[in-house]
């Protein structure tokens, strides 16, 4: 319990004194997870739409595989990423290992199946008449697709938010691919892991609170957006 109160005090101090290291870590974490989520949405939303809106042989298998990948352990992604990016590995020449870009790659791989799977569900849940209506009004294939996505926008947005949650909260691949280098690749989660192992609970707790605050803010934004659309 004393750890907890001590942690809260440290957290408060770090927050209000604008500790540059803490804010640096928060800034980097946000940049990395937002970039990873953005890229994963860029691929996952259209991919989910394609899988969700079409009937093809083997669709059930594809959906099962995507669902399975949602549970991909972060350390496995870290391990595989390490195996590909380390100096002697096939992509070693890119010199990405232990850079923020490597963490983005890892988080991209982790959120992609989540965004894809939830977009598939969003499209499956979409009223069939939305597509028919767009067609009767003269929309071509791309416009029909866009209209469907717009009609499912709240669910698709929720998919992106959950993907962001995954990227922001994972620690395994950020640790293995980023290396937790101070002022360079140290993110909120890797810092929490490190500080806890060092016994610096206050610092760890402050970062933990920040992490929660970030996810909370993002969810408030989503909620406001949904309210705006539904109640007026």
């Amino acid at each position: 319990m004393s750890y907890f109160t001590e942690g809260l005090f440290t957290a408060g101090r770090l927050l209000f004194t604008v500790d540059p290291e803490v804010y640096g870590i928060v800034g980097l974490s946000l940049r990395i997870s937002l970039t990873a989520t953005f890229l994963a949405s860029l691929v996952g939303v259209p991919l989910g739409f394609l899988i969700g809106s079409r009937d093809f042989r083997g669709k059930a298998i594809v959906v099962i595989v995507v669902h399975t990948l949602m549970a991909l352990p972060t350390v496995v992604v870290g391990l595989l990423g390490y195996a590909i990016l380390s100096r002697q590995a096939p992509l070693g020449f890119l010199e990405l290992l232990f850079t923020p870009r490597a963490i983005i790659m890892g988080e991209f791989i982790l959120s992609l199946p989540i965004i894809t799977a939830l977009t598939i569900s969003a499209i499956h849940g979409l009223d069939r008449r939305a597509v028919l209506t767009a067609q009767t009004l003269g929309a071509g294939k791309f416009r029909v697709a866009w209209t469907s996505l717009m009609e499912a926008r709240y669910s698709v947005l929720a998919a992106v938010i959950v993907g962001f949650g995954r990227a922001a909260s994972e620690v395994g691949s950020a640790m293995m691919l980023g290396g937790n280098i101070r002022f360079y690749t140290r993110t909120m989660t890797t810092a929490i892991a490190l500080e806890t192992s060092k016994g610096e609970f206050g610092f760890a707790l402050a970062l933990g609170l920040f992490l929660l605050l970030v996810v909370f803010s993002v969810n408030i934004l989503l909620h406001l957006f949904q309210m705006r659309g539904r109640v007026r």
């Binding site: 008449r129 028919l132 009767t136 009004l137 003269g138 929309a139 209209t147």
Partner: peptide, 24 residues
């Protein structure tokens, strides 16, 4: 064009619904 038996209106304003095909 066709009006479906149980018509579907896009989740936006009436005006935007009517504008949809005109924009196209």
């Amino acid at each position: 064009t066709m009006v479906l038996q149980n018509p579907y209106l896009f989740d936006t304003t009436v005006e935007k619904n009517l504008e949809y095909s005109l924009k196209l």
